[in-house]
């Protein structure tokens, strides 16, 4: 075979990639010409996203509070997600109340901090799994620090940043991409991760109650529909995605009820709350689904607007 010089090979590969990217762009119009929705509307979407951030960080606040209390705050850093998620809740509430159609430096900064803390937490939790005997094993995934949990804080940060960007950008884009699609992708990925977490823990519980299948069935369906709706324009797809996301949002709240029932199923029930609130199913975990579903709904409305204009 004739040898191609390395530089030439790289050039050719790059060129073929560019061709592919261009054709993908044309097909899915990722860089569609900017439209200019009005600022009030953009602010409304931003507030929706703030709400989703608020729910996610509230869930993190309560969940990491409980779980890190269970872990006796052995490491000082275990206080960090409590402080950051509390600040993120505050920032998000401020965002929800803020009628001005522009971003705010403090909010923006806090969302960045939340994202960074979430990412750091992922690292710490991963380390906690790996350092135990057995390393990356089912046992440690079940009982060591939950790998997926800090992701909720990371998502709260990312969605919060999105809320700020939309307020500012008349073109309604994030990192150059249409906001609806970008947020839709983030939401779908976040749902996938949260489903994995719920699936893992419900598997640990041997799916002993049929209700435990709900979070591994409904949210993945919603995420699938949301993803499809981004690439397949059409009312039916969007309506289906909306329904799926609404069900997921509802499930997040219902999950708290299910988990409260789960706690009562442990020895001593609620009377033995000091043990069961820690050993039973985590009360604050399911609302993460609601937070993500709200973000998905916001993304859908962006997509909808985009296609109507």
């Amino acid at each position: 075979m004739r040898r191609v010089p390395a530089a030439e090979a790289r050039r050719r590969a790059l060129a073929s990639l560019q061709v592919t990217a261009r054709s993908l762009n044309e097909k899915y119009s990722l860089n569609a010409p900017a439209r200019t929705p009005d600022p009030e509307w953009r602010n409304a979407v931003g507030r929706k996203l703030n709400l989703s951030s608020a729910l996610l960080s509230l869930s993190v606040l309560a969940d990491s509070g409980l779980e890190h209390y269970r872990g006796s705050f052995q490491n000082r850093l275990m206080y960090l997600p409590l402080a950051v998620s509390a600040a993120t809740v505050a920032a998000s509430l401020f965002g929800i109340a803020d009628a001005r159609a522009k971003s705010h430096a403090v909010r923006d900064g806090l969302y960045v901090l939340a994202g960074l803390t979430g990412a750091t937490g992922l690292g710490f939790h991963g380390y906690n799994v790996m350092k135990r005997p057995g390393g990356l094993s089912w046992l440690n995934l079940f009982y060591a620090a939950p790998v997926g949990a800090p992701m909720a804080l990371l998502l709260a940060g990312v969605l919060g940043r999105g809320a700020e960007r939309i307020r500012d950008d008349e073109a309604c884009t994030i990192l150059g991409y249409p906001a609806g699609k970008a947020l839709g992708l983030v939401t779908s990925a976040g749902l996938a991760g949260t489903v994995a977490e719920a699936g893992l823990l419900h598997f640990r519980g041997a799916f002993q109650n049929p209700g435990m299948f709900l979070p591994v069935v409904v949210p993945p369906a919603a995420a699938g529909l949301l993803t499809t709706a981004q690439f397949r324009p059409g009312n039916i797809m969007r309506r289906a995605a909306k329904l799926g996301l609404r069900l997921t949002a509802l499930l997040g709240f219902a999950g708290v009820g299910f988990h409260a029932y789960g706690i009562s199923r442990n020895m001593g029930g609620w009377r033995n709350w000091s043990q069961n609130i820690l050993n039973g199913p985590p009360l604050p975990a399911p609302p993460s689904f609601t937070g993500l579903a709200l973000a998905g709904l916001a993304a859908l409305s962006l997509i909808e607007r985009g296609s109507h204009d």
């Binding site: 519980g205 041997a206 002993q208 109650n209 199923r265 442990n266 020895m267 050993n279």
Partner: peptide, 13 residues
């Protein structure tokens, strides 16, 4: 039991 089963509670350690 590591999770509830029927009427039975899981282990409380």
């Amino acid at each position: 039991l590591s999770a509830p089963h029927g009427l039975a509670h899981p282990c409380v350690y």
